[in-house]
Amino acid sequence: MPTVVNSLAATQNVSRTVSVALPGRAYDILLGPGQLGQGGRLIAGRLGKGRCGIVTDANVAAYHLGELEASLKAEGRWKGSIVLPAGEASKSFSQLAPLCEQLLEMELERGDMVVALGGGVIGDLAGFAASILRRGVRFVQVPTSLLAQVDSSVGGKTGINTPQGKNLIGTFHQPSLVIIDTDVLETLPDRELRAGYAEVAKYGLLGNADFFDWLEANASKLFDGDLPARLHAIETSVAMKARIVIADEREAGERALLNLGHTFGHALEAWTGYSDRLLHGEGVSIGMCLAFRLSEKLKLCAPGTAARVTAHLAAAGLPTRISDIPGGEMPTPARLLQLMEQDKKVQDGLLTFVLVRGIGQAFVTRDVGRDDVAAFLDENIGAQA
Rank of each mutant, 00 (worst) to 15 (best):
A10F: 04
Q12M: 14
V14M: 09
S15Y: 00
L22Q: 13
Y27H: 10
D28F: 00
I29W: 12
G37T: 06
G48A: 10
G53C: 07
I54P: 08
T56Q: 08
T56M: 10
E67R: 13
S71E: 15
K73G: 15
G80T: 14
G80V: 14
V83N: 11
S94G: 11
E107C: 01
L108Y: 08
L108I: 11
G111C: 04
I132N: 09
G136A: 02
V137M: 13
V140G: 12
S145W: 07
T158C: 15
P163C: 15
P163Q: 15
N167K: 13
E186W: 07
P189Q: 00
L193M: 06
V200P: 06
G207D: 02
K221P: 00
L227S: 09
A239E: 09
A242H: 01
R255D: 08
L257G: 01
L260I: 05
L260A: 11
G265D: 04
A270E: 05
T272C: 14
S275N: 01
E282V: 00
L290F: 05
A302R: 15
H312I: 02
L318S: 08
S323Q: 12
G327L: 11
E329R: 12
A334C: 01
R335T: 14
M340P: 05
T352R: 14
V356Q: 07
V364F: 05
A374M: 10
F376T: 13
D378R: 15
I381T: 00
